[in-house]
Computed example of a mutant assay.
Amino acid sequence: MSGGARFITLEGIDGSGKSTQARLLAEALRGQGHVVHLTREPGGSPGAEEIRKLLLEGDPDRWSAETEILLFTAARRDHLERVIEPALARGEIVICDRFADSTRMYQGLRSAEGREMVDSLHDLMIKREPDLTLLIDLDPQAGLDRALSRKGSEERFESFGTDLQARMRAGFLELAGDFPDRITVIDGARAPEQVAQDILGVVTSRLR
Rank of each mutant, 00 (worst) to 15 (best):
R40K: 15
A87D: 00
L132I: 05
R190G: 08
A112M: 08
M117Q: 13
E158M: 10
D139P: 01
R77N: 05
D163R: 14
A142G: 03
G171N: 04
F99G: 00
F160S: 02
T39S: 04
H122I: 10
G43E: 04
E154N: 03
S111N: 08
P140Y: 11
E41N: 12
A166Q: 03
T20H: 09
Q165K: 00
D59C: 06
F99I: 08
L29R: 08
S153D: 14
S16N: 14
L175G: 02
S102M: 06
R82F: 04
Q107F: 09
K151H: 07
A5Y: 12
A142I: 12
P42H: 14
I8V: 15
R190S: 13
F172K: 06
R169W: 02
Q32P: 00
Q194C: 06
L124H: 09
P46L: 11
V35S: 13
G152S: 09
A28Y: 01
I8T: 07
M117G: 03
W63P: 01
L55G: 07
F7A: 03
Q194V: 13
L29A: 11
V36G: 02
G15Q: 12
L56K: 13
Q141H: 08
D131G: 06
D61L: 13
G152Q: 04
R52K: 13
A176E: 01
G171I: 01
T67V: 14
G188L: 11
L135I: 05
E116H: 07
L55H: 13
E155G: 13
L56A: 06
M117A: 13
E174N: 03
D198M: 11
S2H: 12
Q32Y: 09
C96M: 04
K18H: 03
T73M: 05
I126P: 05
G188T: 13
S16L: 10
R208W: 13
